[in-house]
Design a protein around this nucleic acid. Structure first.
Lengths: 119, 119
DNA sequence: CAGCATCCTGGTAGATACTG
DNA sequence: CAGTATCTACCAGGATGCTG
């Protein structure tokens, strides 16, 4: 259950939809790095769970709008707090991260380049 | 950034640590389905980000305790709201999900078994 | 007990091509 | 425009064995 709401794309999609209905292509452009496949998949899952609603306009060119259901709005609000936390504490995290890495350096003797970088 | 906080195991680990310090083995048992590898990995990442602190007791047998830093406590609190949302709305989601699936059935005619199941 | 190194597998996401 | 279908590659994550 947590899996579906903590999904990366889900968080981003709901972030955009908070401001009102969006078309497929708009979402695609608004979310950097999302593939058409993942966007479709994410939206289907959200629709299935009653988080977003999908409205098809039988026009030419075809047009499909996605918007939040009431349930979706409550989730989006909750997720937004998470995003807020991330924004507010990102610098603290990054700072701690680099000092941690620096400390690790001192233990792991020589970072000799044995056949390329780490990993 | 969101990736690290929306990780599955992260959420579960922080959920447990809210109640105080836990030992490695306790966490392992307290979180169903987590492998030793993933738990180690998750804890390392959280330590690196300053979310949890790791205290080693040079006793025999060895003992390592994990606890939340102040930063971690704030994150844990935020994540807990998410868990709360999930609990409160899980039934609504599941209900919508089954009605959605039922509707899909009617469109996708005969679920004939063409060489194994779907996929 | 806690943790690391290694190997191996399967699901997941990307790329590509086609359709209503 | 908004999808579906198919193929492939990659790497997250499980299993195993060893160490301090």
């Amino acid at each position: 259950m947590l899996d579906c709401v903590t999904d990366k794309w889900t968080v981003l999609v709901l972030g955009l939809l908070r401001s009102g209905p969006w078309r497929f292509g708009q979402l695609r452009q608004g979310i950097e790095g999302v593939s058409q496949k993942m966007l479709t998949q994410t939206l289907r899952a959200l629709e299935r769970d009653g988080i977003v609603s999908r409205e098809v306009f039988a026009s030419s060119p075809p047009k499909v709008e996605y918007s939040l259901t009431p349930l979706g709005q409550s989730l989006a609000a909750t997720l937004d707090e998470l995003r807020l936390w991330a924004e507010q504490h990102m610098d603290a995290v990054l700072r701690h991260r680099s000092s941690y890495d620096a400390a690790a350096m001192r233990h792991e003797p020589v970072p000799v380049n044995r056949a390329g970088a780490a990993r």
